[in-house]
């Protein structure tokens, strides 16, 4: 997994609430057997009109907005467990998604792929979306070790929460399997005590 410590970037605003993983990557693009290349179909049905013509009204097709941070609406990533959603966002170039609420499975998938789901309150999210619309060059500073999001132009610095174990993994580029394999003896010992009913 790619390491993540700090990031300073402009951001792309996508002020839609309840974005589900079927929008992030529709099911018909899940037929690949590798992790790469999903960025091409990120937000496919919003990004392209019939005939594969880029939709000029969709923010990823608007050159005004660029950057490695996606600022989405409330409740991001609900629905299907497809990790392809996290892969697509990462493959496209995003490293942070900001929202005021994340669906559980998406949050876990993102953290397992070096993509930081960064939760802020509703009020700041709305102000941030408005500020980016007003000034597309607005920069954000994300500091994972300090767990802070800084928005200099709004004179804001807020602390965000992240699971301490996942934080350590992201900073060091570790994944769960490296860690779990060190637990092999404890797992084997546990197995001797399992009830017959669940074996």
């Amino acid at each position: 997994m790619e390491k993540f410590t700090t990031l300073t970037s402009t951001a792309v605003p996508l002020a839609i609430e309840d974005i589900d993983t079927d929008q992030i990557i529709p099911a018909r693009f899940l037929k690949a057997t590798t992790r790469e290349g999903f960025g091409e179909n990120l937000f496919r049905d919003w990004r392209y009109l019939p005939g594969d013509v880029p939709n000029p009204d969709f923010v990823l097709n608007d050159d005004t907005y660029r950057g490695q941070v996606l600022v989405a609406g409330k409740n991001f990533g609900m629905g299907s467990s497809r990790e392809h959603a996290a892969w697509a966002l990462f493959d496209y170039g995003f490293r942070v998604v900001i929202s005021s609420f994340f669906a559980d499975i998406f949050r876990g998938n993102a953290l397992n792929n070096g993509l930081l789901p960064l939760q802020i309150d509703d009020d700041l999210l709305l102000r941030l979306q408005a500020a980016i619309k007003e000034d597309p060059e607005l920069t954000l500073e994300v500091d994972l070790p300090q767990q802070t999001l800084t928005i200099p132009s709004l004179d804001e610095q807020v602390r965000f929460e992240v699971d301490p174990y996942k934080k350590m993994c992201m900073i060091n580029g570790y994944d769960d399997i490296d860690f779990l394999r060190t637990k092999a003896d404890v797992i084997t010992a546990y197995e001797t005590k399992r009830p017959v009913a669940v074996q």
Partner: peptide, 30 residues
């Protein structure tokens, strides 16, 4: 698959996971 929650009808803890976690379970059963 997120609809793994279905199996909870039997009094199980059943839930959907991402592919990295599929790999974790295959590799460690945890």
């Amino acid at each position: 698959d997120s609809h793994t929650s279905t199996h909870g009808a039997f009094g199980c803890i059943a839930f959907g996971i991402g592919t990295s976690q599929v790999e974790q379970v295959l590799a460690t059963q945890c």
